[in-house]
């Protein structure tokens, strides 16, 4: 015989005994049963699933992602400018132009990658690979033009990585 009275006493008796008034018991799937769910209070879910609330949250998140992209691009441009000027003084004009071409390609690559990630989940199910055409074009152009050098162009292309790392290290911690 199943002791229904004992089971209900165990389930609902914990509501008052629990120090956390919202949570009464851990569900078998690992989540928590909220008191309002048991008592049939669905107003919390209606608020969470409200389309206007979700739209506002999505807009705020998109703005945050856009601001992050802008900060990364700005930092990448600053780093590129510093390296181009340094290379112009230390190695000559051809090297600095190669670094400049590579850095601009790297920023364009990062822009395409960020756009692909921005579309992930909303209009695309996978991140596109169109950004990989940028290093291909860069290597082909550099190998065809005698004024440009391959190694400085590749180093310039990889300048987006320090800017990403610096940006994420300097990012303020959101509480």
């Amino acid at each position: 015989m199943i002791d229904f009275a004992g089971l209900s006493q165990r389930a609902f008796g914990d509501i008052d005994a629990s120090p956390h008034k919202g949570f009464i018991d851990e569900s078998p799937s690992g989540g928590f049963l909220v008191q309002s769910e048991l008592l049939g209070d669905s107003s919390i879910h209606e608020t969470l699933l409200d389309p206007e609330t979700l739209d506002e949250q999505s807009k705020i998140s998109q703005d945050e992602y856009l601001q992050l992209q802008l900060r990364i691009y700005r930092l990448a441009f600053v780093l590129a400018a510093i390296f181009v000027v340094l290379a112009a003084f230390l190695f000559g004009q051809n090297t600095s132009i190669s670094i400049l071409v590579g850095a601009l390609s790297g920023i364009l690559y990062l822009r395409l990658l960020a756009r692909g990630i921005g579309k992930l989940g909303s209009s695309q199910k996978i991140v596109g690979k169109i950004q990989l055409i940028i290093p291909v074009i860069l290597v082909l152009v550099v190998s065809k033009l005698p004024e440009l050098q391959l190694l400085p162009a590749l180093l310039g292309f990889l300048l987006y990585k320090p800017s990403l790392v610096i940006q994420f290290l300097l990012e303020p911690k959101v509480q």
Binding site: Q62, D63, Y65, V127
Partner: peptide
């Protein structure tokens, strides 16, 4: 959904570093 911006930012970082391995192979091939 409220953490979408931070998740996408972290995904951008990880994708950029992962894809650079592909780019190294691509550059060697080219």
């Amino acid at each position: 959904p409220e953490a979408e911006g931070k998740i996408r930012g972290t995904l951008l970082l990880s994708f950029a570093f992962m894809e650079s391995l592909t780019i190294y192979g691509l550059v060697v091939a080219l």
